[in-house]
Nucleic acid binder design. Structure first.
Length: 417
RNA sequence: GGGAGAGUGUCCCGAGUGGCAAAGGGGGCGGACUGUAAAUCCGCUGGCUUAGCCUUCGUAGGUUCGAGUCCUACCUCUCCCA
């Protein structure tokens, strides 16, 4: 692929499909080609984990670091107390200080796996609570607030949705973009940071920082955004049956994570390989041209590589092995999600409905019943159509477990204890 | 402070004007077809000890045999006037 930029950094991002908009491509390129630059991405602490949408921008930080530059991951300890109104049609619930702190603790762990915070040229993690919480109101208004035009802020697409729907946009939320703009300037002062990256929905917020620096007679700053990732079928990337695809293993298991990528649509395999894995581009090109059934091999590579980045190589290999045993050999793999059942209960015979609920394959007896009636349920791979069926010791396989399945993809084991 | 309007199935949008477990979408799940893909078609999409019972339409009361629908108060949000 022809190099469009002079700097390795922008070439990598360009060739792997990360670039949506850059505020001044040539200026940024020249700067990055000349020497190391410092760039950051901000993350809100609105949940106990980040999700795969965030993984994209963390990966940009990875490439930033990898191409010899300095990466900053900014925790939004201060901004999360306000809540980003961008492209939302309602106000976020206000989080307590304790929630924010515990969310940050929980989120932090994931970054260490993806970015390197030690050794030569380490990435750094900063929390904007450090400076935002110290601000003096009137002082801040005079120093920073005077550079923001309300007329202009009202014209941003990010708040249009709210205004057009005649939904209230509180003054609190309205301040979010000012705070984020100020963060950029502050990071420039403290660390010489000149680049902020983010999703395309953050463009307005990032540009605010670039402008603010101008107006405060600071240095030229740069904005770079990624496209909003959608599947070829038009859906937003990152949603699964159980909600968001989280990176923390306790919210979304490595096995489920692996499965999520394994089920990528054909048309997206190449795109995802470039963005989510670190495989060389020529290898990706080779994988992406596979057709039909062979493309499934590329999907397995994708799933394993991404899982390895997020959960570690061991967890990735294990997930791949479990999937291979379950789907390809039709065997019982003991590392499928397993639930305990008391031996006494089993002896007496336990209703299939409640067994399905226990195994997490149904949310309620009613749901379990409908699944059975819809022909979705199998016990030890034998279809069951009677919703009054019971399980007993006779169902135990030689491995000492009972395998329950809902549909082709969801499996769980019950073990007598 | 005065006036007008909105809040529906704990995923979203959205009909409904005294008989409603509540139309229709989207999304999701399942089945068929395949390749653990997409597209297409079909079924399901409050809970339970399921010929029945219980809980749901912003909150709390009231009218009525019966209320999402009518009345009162309150909460939240919009818009107009001051």
């Amino acid at each position: 692929m022809a190099a469009r930029f002079k700097s390795d950094f922008l070439n990598v991002l360009d060739q792997r499909g990360f670039i949506h908009q850059i505020s001044d491509p040539d200026g940024l390129d020249a700067l990055a080609a000349k020497g190391p630059i410092t760039g950051y991405v901000g993350y809100d602490a609105t949940a106990t984990s980040i999700h795969i949408g965030n993984l994209i921008t963390v990966t940009m930080l990875y490439w930033l670091q990898e191409t010899g530059h300095k990466a900053i991951s900014l925790m939004g300890g201060g901004t999360s107390m306000v809540g980003d109104p961008s492209f939302r049609d309602d106000q976020r619930k206000l989080l307590t200080v304790e929630q924010i702190a515990s969310n940050i603790e929980s989120i932090k762990r994931v970054y260490g796996r993806i970015l390197r915070y030690d050794g030569a040229n380490p990435a750094i993690m900063v929390n904007n609570a450090e400076w935002l919480l110290e601000l003096k109101y009137v002082e801040f208004l005079r120093d920073v607030g005077r550079f923001f035009s309300v007329n202009r802020m009202l014209s941003f697409d990010s708040v249009k949705l709210r205004l057009d729907r005649e939904q209230s946009l509180s003054f609190l939320e309205f301040n979010y973009m000012i705070m984020q703009g100020y963060d950029f300037v502050e990071l420039n002062r403290r660390y010489g940071c000149v680049l902020q990256m983010g999703g395309s929905d953050q463009w307005g917020n990032i540009i605010n920082g670039v402008d603010l620096s101008h107006r405060m007679e600071g240095p030229q700053l740069y904005a770079l955004t990624t496209p909003l990732l959608t599947k070829s079928s038009g859906e937003k990337m990152g949603k699964s049956a159980s909600g968001a695809v989280w990176l923390n293993g306790d919210l979304f298991s490595p096995y489920d994570f692996w499965q999520y990528f394994r089920n990528t649509e054909d048309a997206d395999v190449g795109k995802w390989l470039k963005i989510f894995t670190r495989l060389p581009l020529d290898e990706i090109a080779r994988l992406a041209v596979l057709q039909g059934n062979e493309l499934n091999d590329a999907k397995k590579v994708l799933a394993t590589e991404v899982t390895a980045i997020v959960h570690g190589r061991d967890a990735a290999d294990k997930a791949a092995a479990t999937a291979a045993a379950t789907f390809e050999q039709g065997a019982i793999d003991l590392s499928l999600p397993t639930f305990e059942l008391s031996r006494v209960e089993l002896k007496a015979g336990i209703g299939l409905l409640s067994a399905l609920v226990t195994a997490g394959l149904a949310g309620s007896n009613g749901e379990a019943r409908r699944a059975i009636q819809g022909g979705a349920i199998r016990v030890n791979d034998e279809p069951v159509t009677d919703d009054r069926a019971t399980l007993s010791e006779a169902h135990l396989l030689p491995e000492g477990v009972i395998k329950l399945s809902s549909g082709k993809k969801k499996h769980a084991l019950l073990r007598a204890a």
